[in-house]
Design a binder for these strands. Sequence first.
RNA 1: GGGCAGGUACCGAAGUGGACAAACGGGGCUGACUGUAAAUCAGCUGGCAGACGCCUUCGGCGGUUCGAAUCCGUCCCUGCCCA
Length: 412
Amino acid sequence: MEQHTLDIEKQVTLLMRGTEYGDEQLKEAMRIELRQRLIEAQAEGRPLRVYCGYDPTATDLHLGHTITMQKLRQFQDLGHHVIFLIGDYTALVGDPSDKNKARPILSHEQVLENAKTFAEQAFRVLDPEKTEIRYNSEWLGKLTLVDLIYLGQNFTVQQFLARENFAKRIKEGSPIFLHETFYPLLQGYDAVMLKADVQVGGSDQLFNIIVAGRKLQEVFGQKPLVGILVDILPGTDGVQRMSKTTGNIVPIFTTSEDMYGKLMSIPDFAMGKYFRLSTRLTSEEISALEAGLAAGKIHPRDAKMRLAREIVSIFYGSEAAEAAEAAFVQIFQRKDVPEEMDVYQVQPGQSILDVLVDSGMVDSRSAGRRMIQQNGVRLNGETLDDPNAPFPGEGILQVGKRHFRRIIISKE
RNA sequence: GGGCAGGUACCGAAGUGGACAAACGGGGCUGACUGUAAAUCAGCUGGCAGACGCCUUCGGCGGUUCGAAUCCGUCCCUGCCCA
């Protein structure tokens, strides 16, 4: 018995690590509830039911999503039951939490298309053997109007208006569509249908999880879930939250080299958050690193390379991470060329511009001309300056900093 | 349903008959520099041709005009106020 409580204490410490509630009291309350729930479940001889929902509003899952996924993984590794919920119906509504404006309307077909590879992407972090995949259309699709009315009776308009993002939109005079207010109800209903003990989410999910989810579970006679809220990862710009629409994502499905490079492009000031949220380094190690940086003992470039290496190795293993680093050093630090690149075969009579466009290295002839004018096109290191000249010969064609093709001349 | 204000490029936002492919800012791209694809500085940022020029784009459609993002009609959408 003594031994078990100790185990639980360790679990609580691990599971609460990296959480962010924006309010110490709430955090403490959740810590206590988590401990209690673990004790109860253990007494009942069952694992906790833990879930996090992901809305397929776009095709790519990205590093930002993996913060909650890593938290799910922790639960999984501790033997708890994890549900990866695909929000194919909530995606139709669009979560107003993280937005300063309404989401564009998607059709259910588009959403399902987006969701196609969600699970596959998630398994880069989660254990496929231990993960239950669900779609919330399963129960949201069956909700009747009466059900919805009943759900709505538990919330007031004032609760919604008080939320920062809605208040902001009201102040700006930008629209808030009625259906957006359904979002928390639907997410809360997910929690009810899943009989969740724990819900993991970003700290922007506070209302949806702590207010809506817990409230509705109580209404349905369930014990309100424990919310595990994690901090939000900024995108590659270092400021705005990572999101596909902002265009600042590090996608999960990409090459190790690309992931490494994207991580190297984050601003120096964002390194701390990335280390804390996306790597396995302990907070002591990170603090030491930051102290070194502040004292000028550690080069920011080296710290960022460490960051990139750490994260890439989580997804691709340490060998691939080292290879990606080597490629990065080769291309960007030594300004050398990569080991591997696509091959393009030049046809007789093609001009330089023809090759740029036809090989897909530029989007249009105008863009190609611009690129040449700006000295962005090189063949074997020699800058090419006449778009209309016949393509001069074989070798390595480079456009901008990071686009390469091996050019061969067709024998004819 | 009525009154008022709006709908401009990837985003924000000027422009209110010709000099508008459309100021400015952000984003993106290129170059220089560097400590890195950070920061900073400079340039570029609809397409075709690249010399003149031509084509598509300012919510949709239709008009007025030699000429419309700009004026008129109509429709759609948003905010505020009223009901």
